[in-house]
Design a protein around this nucleic acid. Structure first.
Length: 586
RNA sequence: GCGCCCGUAGCUCAGCUGGAUAGAGCAUCGGCCUUCUAAGCCGGCGGUCGCAGGUUCGAGUCCUGCCGGGCGCGCCA
């Protein structure tokens, strides 16, 4: 619809240019808006206002000239000038009524487009370190990333989703020894637990599994493990130095093979748990990309060489630095530490270069907002490597706070005191969790009201929308019970009966859906869809209360059943994109 | 101190690339169930869009400064 209005205006403007009234304007996007108010028609364009200045004439006058050259269209009833020079379009009811057949026919495909055809987009999200189960903070990025990917798919993009697994580095070593120490304790060894170790209950669980499967293969006397180690924090030492020496001790005593075995075992256990949690949350990834694999095949050293050859690296204080300030970063960054180890940043440069080399037209990273300071250095690195940083979009997601009984739920990652994503799902359910996570703009802090998410009432937008869907399914059951029969074809000739204001309002809303999907996809804004579905449900509930659908007159009945089935399709399609179910009964 | 995000109704938030009288939910007040699920509908109340300037035909939207809140500023990831 919008596209048609746009085409009409384009036509008129080209005619004006041909007539010499307007100078050709190279990159003009013709604005077409939905009328905010019924009195402003269905669509409105301020194009005359926008062009008046460069055309050096009165906007209303220009609007008149546009209007004179506007081709006729079967969907437009009239077009007129209003206010300072808006062109308002009033559509025929028939244009809306025809939508019923269109939606019924398109079914699952209604709202999809080919906007992103030929575009290969990668969406990388969650990518939480596998050092523990996912918590509610990760949940928002997960829900958001998944819906962004869905929206891009719906608009015809070829989407590859990916989880980057940080399976190399010190944190993983700390994790491995944490499990090993718990394992030793389970074996009966007495030894203290490091202040900097991972303390969550899941560590013990993995340690117990390790013991079950491998017996005492990794057992060593506690005294040997502890011999001559520096003091830990409680004893007045440094917890970082202490944990590093425990890691070193583990490597020495266990030997490379056994240490690596524990390391891999722990990693696999946690990745499996994360994958499980996400699956239960309705999220799966096409690819799990290992940081270690990047290092193993030398991609990190290669990229450092490339930067060095291009003259972007220098040595200082024993470390190797990338001159990112040359590309608008606020300070230079270390890529190889004094101890010879590459930094996380170095891996990330290699990873991002790899993404680009895989041929994606666009690369999207979904990060927690606390990583925003990291964006300039990644862009800088890409630029230094002759990759176009404009092809990278980093979407920052603000954190979510949980509220229960009006009180903020305290959380701290330290000492394992956080609410896991699994707990959240068990408490409020997958559907409410998915919806609540994306119902706010992503750069807005989210107050997640647990009580509201659980409420089975109209206060809860998830139920409100699902209820609309269930009501329609119920009407269809009643249709059969009352001996009426309906199929899509019955509505096609009947839609002319849809003349009530509630019906036209609902039709207008349905016509908006493709535009909402497009805007939500291009702007990476799932919340737009959430708001839209709420409004659609509202229009439906209003209609439901105002009119009986199962009337005796077959034609009217078939028209109405067509309309509500079209509504059901849009509700279902929209909810599916959000990862929320569309139940037939509630 | 510097950088990024945010500041809209009592509360939680929308407001599309600046566009015509600023919207929704909750809360509050008042109506609607012998008819397709009242997990619903309708109506009332409620805002100097943080403050002050600027840009222009037009600013909640863009620019500058200030005030208030969040986050970041590691040879951590």
């Amino acid at each position: 619809m919008k596209a048609e209005i746009h085409a009409l205006l384009q036509h008129a403007l080209e005619a004006l240019i041909n007539d010499g009234v307007l100078a050709a304007i190279p990159e003009l996007t013709i604005p077409v808006e939905r009328g905010r108010d019924d009195s402003h028609g269905d669509f409105a364009s301020p194009v005359a206002l926008a062009l008046a200045r460069s055309a050096r004439c009165n906007p209303r006058q220009l609007a008149t000239q546009i209007l004179e050259r506007l081709p006729t269209s079967p969907i437009v009833e009239k077009a007129e000038i209003a206010g300072p020079g808006f062109i308002n379009f009033y559509l025929r009811d028939a244009a809306y009524q025809a939508l019923v057949g269109e939606i019924l026919q398109a079914d699952d495909n209604y709202g999809t487009s080919k906007l992103g055809a030929k575009q290969r987009v990668q969406v990388e999200y969650v990518s939480a370190n596998p050092t523990g189960p996912l918590h509610v903070g990760h949940g928002r990025g997960a829900a958001y990333g998944a819906v962004v990917a869905n929206l891009l798919r719906a608009t015809g993009h070829e989407v590859a989703s990916e989880y980057y697994v940080n399976d190399a580095g010190r944190q993983m070593d700390i994790l491995a020894v944490s499990v090993w120490l718990r394992y030793l304790q389970s074996c009966g060894e007495t030894l203290p637990f490091p202040a900097n170790g991972y303390r969550g209950a899941y560590i013990q669980t993995i340690a117990d599994q390790l013991q079950n499967e491998h017996g005492e293969e990794f057992r060593l006397p506690g005294s040997t493990v502890l011999e001559a180690l520096p003091a830990d924090e409680p004893a007045g030492g440094d917890k970082e130095i202490y944990i590093d020496s425990v890691i070193e001790r583990a490597r020495t005593l266990l030997g490379k093979r056994r240490y690596q075995l524990i390391h891999s075992y722990v990693l696999a256990a946690l990745v499996e748990e994360i994958r499980d949690d996400l699956l239960n949350f309705g999220i799966s990834f096409e690819n799990w990309y290992s940081e270690r694999s990047l290092m193993d095949r030398g991609a990190v050293t290669t990229v450092i060489e490339r930067l060095r050859d291009a003259g972007h690296l220098y040595e200082r204080e024993g470390a190797l630095w990338f001159r990112s300030t040359e590309f608008d970063d606020e300070k230079d960054r270390v890529v190889v530490r004094e101890n010879g180890q590459t930094t996380y940043f170095a891996s990330d440069i290699a990873y991002h270069l790899d993404k680009f080399e895989r041929g994606f037209t666009r690369v999207i990273d979904v990060w927690g907002a606390d990583h925003h300071g990291y964006v300039p250095r990644v862009r800088a690195a890409l630029q230094a490597l002759q990759a176009d940083p404009a092809r990278l979009d980093v979407l920052l997601v603000q954190f979510a706070n949980l509220y229960r009984g009006g009180e903020k739920v305290a959380m701290s990652t330290r000492s394992g005191e956080f609410v896991t994503l699994r707990q959240l799902r068990e408490e409020v359910g997958k559907n409410a969790a998915r919806f609540f996570y994306v119902m706010r703009k992503s750069d807005q802090h989210l107050d997640f009201d647990l009580d509201l998410a659980k409420a089975e009432s109209n206060d809860n937008p998830v139920y409100y929308i699902q209820y609309a869907h269930a009501r329609i399914a119920s009407v269809m059951r009643q249709t059969n019970e009352k001996g009426f029969r309906w199929q899509a074809a019955d509505s096609l000739d009947a839609v002319g009966e849809l003349n009530e204001s509630h019906e036209l309002a609902l039709l207008r809303r349905l016509s908006l859906y493709p535009e909402v999907i497009e805007a939500a996809a291009l702007g990476y804004e799932p919340h737009q869809l959430a708001y839209y579905l709420r409004e659609l449900a509202n229009d439906f509930h209003t209609y439901y209360n105002a009119h009986i659908f199962l009337v005796p007159e077959a034609v009217l009945r078939n028209a109405r059943l067509g309309l509500i089935n079209a509504t059901r399709i849009v509700l279902r399609n929209g909810l599916a994109l959000l990862g929320v179910s569309a139940p037939d009964t509630m």
